[in-house]
């Protein structure tokens, strides 16, 4: 008995070591990216010259005006707009698949949603540019606008929310269901009162992934948002987001212009950092429900 316990410990130790080594490789890779970005952006960051990102008058890199603020607002507006639209639809679809759909509908429905996660952003963009934008243009020109970007992005991040929420719901222990059934809760109260709170951690994780994908999406937004650098004041305003700015100009940029584009990459990461931090605060405040 003693021997087998020590053997068990031994294997665990080796296994744990191997795993932490893997984590180390992963963390190293990731660290490299941050170092690389900072290094490339250094020319416009040193000596406090980063302040120009926030007080410069517009974005005209060839005339040395490097204001990022309007694009930051645009990024936030587009991402949160998409999230507000995609969250109820995505979570609703997850609940539909798990608890409402008959098996012959639920299965194909969930494969359709998974499939959507794999459609290239170019295809979303192409569809948006040739179908959605002309449609919006009929209501209010120019069509390429904040609204178009929000709609296309909402579709793109929806599968992420649905899939992660669904897997969070489906890995809930079955006694939760049985207990609430025993309490004679209605299906709605059971889902809203018990199951969703219990799966909240997983759902928040998914929402976070989706938000982060919305912030980082490039090609589709570039194709439909209009790309005019301005602070958005209405749904029909054309806007340029930070990622589209990088994609549009990186291949043509040199010197400070190029460094400023890398700096906007860093700015995106800071943005994501804030989102992630808030989310980790939120989820650590919640109990697991069954812990």
């Amino acid at each position: 008995m003693n021997k087998s316990v020590s053997q068990t410990k031994d294997i665990d130790w080796w296994f744990g070591m191997a795993l932490s080594l893997l984590m180390g490789v992963a963390a190293l890779l990731l660290l490299l990216i941050i170092v690389f970005l900072t290094n490339e952006a250094w020319p416009v960051l040193q000596g406090g010259s980063w302040a120009q990102f926030f007080n410069a008058d517009g974005w005209y890199p060839l005339e040395n005006k490097l204001g990022l603020l309007p694009m930051l607002w645009a990024t936030l507006a587009v991402s949160f707009g998409a999230l507000i639209l995609a969250l109820p639809l995505g979570l609703g679809s997850a609940i539909f698949i798990e608890y409402y759909a008959p098996k012959f509908i639920g299965k194909p429905f969930s494969s359709v949603v998974t499939l959507l996660a794999g459609i290239p952003s170019v295809v979303f963009g192409l569809w948006g540019l040739t179908k959605l934008v002309p449609l919006i243009n009929n209501i209010h020109p120019p069509g390429a606008s904040l609204l178009a970007a929000v709609l296309v992005l909402a579709l793109m991040i929806l599968p992420t929310i649905t899939l992660t929420s669904r897997s969070a719901l489906s890995s809930l222990p079955s006694h939760l269901l049985q207990n609430s059934a025993a309490l004679a809760l209605s299906k709605k109260s059971m889902i809203i009162g018990v199951l969703i709170p219990s799966a909240l951690r997983g759902i928040i994780g998914g929402v976070l992934l989706a938000l982060v994908r919305a912030v980082g999406e490039t090609m589709a937004v570039l194709m439909v948002a209009g790309n005019v650098v301005q602070t958005p004041t209405g749904l029909f305003d054309p806007v340029r987001v930070l990622t589209a700015n990088i994609a549009l100009e990186m291949a043509y940029a040199t010197d400070n212009h190029r460094a400023a584009l890398f700096a906007s990459g860093l700015l995106l990461m800071i943005l994501v950092f804030c989102v992630a931090w808030i989310a980790s605060r939120l989820s650590s405040g919640e109990t697991n429900g069954y812990d």
């Binding site: 040739t130 002309p134 243009n137 120019p142 069509g143 005019v228 054309p238 994609a247 549009l248």
Partner: peptide
């Protein structure tokens, strides 16, 4: 100068321009 221009849509490649104009 580019800062003189008041654009409603900014595009990247040729085909995007053609698609934008043909739809508007």
């Amino acid at each position: 100068k580019n800062s003189d221009i008041k654009a409603s849509v900014v595009i990247g490649d040729n085909q995007q321009g053609i698609k934008t104009v043909s739809g508007n």
